[in-house]
Design a protein around this nucleic acid. Structure first.
Lengths: 200, 200
DNA sequence: ATTATTCATTGACTTTTAGTCAAATATTAC
DNA sequence: GTAATATTTGACTAAAAGTCAATGAATAAT
């Protein structure tokens, strides 16, 4: 990495860090781009070098921690399906907690918007989660843990709705539940009945 | 109702109708207050007579159809718990569908925000759903359908997360599922396992 | 019936902020 | 050493949120 790339990366990170802190504290709508750049110690114009629109920083803020989870799951291919899913739910909820309610609510909004496709080349949005969960199910199908005729796509939709439901609920309750305990309860009650029908 | 009250109600309704149509069509962020007032045929200033902030209209837009559901459920007190819940889920999803993805996504965002308390006196936000579901459970407890020691509040949180999960999922899939069929599948798989432990 | 008061309505105005862009500066390539 | 390229900058523009004093019609008071 040369000096230019390093500088660019540093500036980008400064913006993301400043953005995360400010959004956590005050919420996305209550801050403006200059608040972020001031806190990051760069000029306003630099923001738009890295993000096309104000909102685009949110996906980057939230994708950072979520990105790590994907790797982990690759190293868990031998685990049982429900264990892998539960792990995913746990880690997802940890991210939700560390990002805080204000980040999550903006992120949820962005993720729901079919038109909101940021133009950085790795901007895959929620499909990221979807594809990850789907591949977990597909692994289980080829393992023989799930029946061959399991409708992986439909099941993924149902499972991801549990995931987002869990997050939404946690945010709505204003963080009053201990997130890991909550997740544990959730997975225990919810995941098995969904899969039951398709388990070998 | 005198002429003044009538005029006020008419203006408010015009704004809500115009707002709903525009948000459905273009999304909340893509329209401005003047678009709404122009379509409603009133002056810009009138908007702020009825809504303190631009966003406040969204809760009113979405609350209108949701409000009706509450009444219906009052007339279903004798039905079985799961039937009542399923009915609620169905009607909720009908509202989601008729409001459309753009309204829902803004609504979800507003509902997630603990600070977003509109100052019209009946602005109860999502607690509306919460209290309604909770009272359904409480009815079932006093009916004897659920055990006396059922943790109504916790269960309500879990059930409402299913509801929002369902909606979020439907929005994310860009409305590709037929909503009622989707709801049916959802309730069938999800509701009973949640309640099982507490049913008498 | 007349006058005073109240309140919805208006649109020009202020303020805020998202987003642009040309110039300056630093780095890399040739 | 010079040309090409990329990052950084902040003044500037454009757009839209939100304000407010003036207007006039409806209602209440005398």
């Amino acid at each position: 990495m040369n000096k230019r790339q390093l500088s660019a990366q540093t500036t980008r990170r400064k913006l993301i860090t400043a953005g995360l802190e400010l959004i956590k504290e005050k919420g996305f709508d209550a801050i403006n781009v200059e608040d972020i750049t001031r806190k990051a110690g760069v000029a306003k114009g630099s923001f738009y070098t890295y993000f096309k629109r104000k909102e685009d920083i949110v996906l980057d803020i939230s994708r950072a921690p979520f990105g790590e989870i994907a790797e982990e799951l690759q190293n868990m291919k031998k685990m049982e399906l429900i264990e892998r899913l539960t792990h995913y739910f746990h880690r997802f909820m940890e991210c939700v907690e560390s990002c805080g309610i204000n980040v999550c609510r903006q992120w949820t909004k962005d993720v729901l918007d079919p038109n909101n496709v940021p133009d950085n080349k790795d901007g895959q949005k929620w499909k990221y989660d979807f594809e990850m969960l789907k591949s977990i199910l597909e692994d289980a199908i080829s393992n023989g843990e799930l029946k061959k005729d399991t409708p992986a796509e439909l099941l993924t939709h149902i499972i991801i709705s549990e995931l987002y439901g869990m997050m939404t609920c946690w945010c709505m309750s204003d963080g009053k539940f201990e997130p890991l305990e909550w997740t544990h309860k959730f997975c225990k009650i919810q995941l098995r009945p969904i899969l039951q029908k398709y388990l070998n």
